[in-house]
Simulated assay, not measured.
Amino acid sequence: MEAVEQTTHVWSKRTLKLSCIRTRGDVETPVIKTLDLLSTGYRRGGLLEEMLASSECPMSHLRAYKLIRLLNQAAHDPDVKHIFNTAIAKLFPRDLSKLIFHLDDVLGKR
């Protein structure tokens, strides 16, 4: 039986499941990476969902792992959560600048 790849990332009230591909040699295997939405405070309907909706799917499992790690670390910053949870139509350019600043700070603390 051949594995079926998901073509979209799946959101629920509790989790975000990223559809991924793990490549070893010439073999590609579908994998799911999960972000716990309850523990991070992220939710649907905001910038994060829009970004993921227009991102590659399936994505590299390594890229998904790094993204989930960044999102977990950034969830401790209320400004980051607020911006990621806000609909794009309600954001201003200064919000995106603020998001970049805060994410850069999160990455710098590694």
Rank of each mutant, 00 (worst) to 15 (best):
S19W: 06
I21N: 06
A3F: 10
E5V: 05
K17V: 10
W11I: 03
V10E: 13
E28R: 11
T23K: 12
R14A: 11
T23C: 05
S12N: 08
T15G: 02
D26F: 01
R14F: 00
G25V: 04
S19F: 04
E2A: 03
H9C: 09
T23N: 06
K13R: 11
E28K: 13
T29P: 04
T23A: 10
T7L: 15
M1F: 03
R14Q: 11
V10Q: 13
M1V: 10
L16W: 03
R24T: 08
T8Y: 12
T7K: 15
T29K: 10
I21V: 15
A3I: 05
A3R: 04
G25E: 02
S12M: 07
V4I: 14
K17M: 13
D26R: 03
D26Y: 02
T29D: 05
K13Q: 14
K17F: 04
G25I: 08
A3M: 08
M1S: 12
W11C: 06
T7W: 15
K17Y: 07
R14Y: 05
R24G: 00
V31A: 09
Q6D: 12
H9R: 10
Q6W: 11
T15L: 11
E5N: 06
T15V: 07
E2N: 02
E5R: 13
P30T: 06
C20E: 03
T8A: 14
M1N: 09
R22P: 06
R14M: 03
L16T: 00
K17L: 11
K17N: 11
R14G: 02
T8M: 12
L18M: 12
R24D: 01
W11H: 04
E5S: 08
L18E: 03
H9F: 12
V10I: 14
T7P: 08
R22Y: 09
E5Q: 08
M1C: 02
R24C: 02
E28N: 05
T8I: 15
V10F: 06
H9E: 13
V10L: 11
Q6M: 14
G25Y: 02
Q6P: 05
P30M: 08
T15D: 13
E28Y: 03
W11K: 05
S12I: 01
T29Q: 08
M1W: 01
G25D: 04
R24M: 07
R24I: 12
V31I: 15
L16E: 00
M1Y: 02
T23M: 11
T8L: 14
I21K: 14
V27N: 01
E28H: 09
P30L: 11
V31D: 04
G25C: 00
M1E: 11
R22N: 07
K13I: 06
T15S: 10
V27D: 06
H9T: 09
T29I: 14
V27C: 00
V31H: 08
Q6G: 10
R22W: 08
I21F: 12
P30E: 09
K13N: 12
I21A: 11
T23P: 02
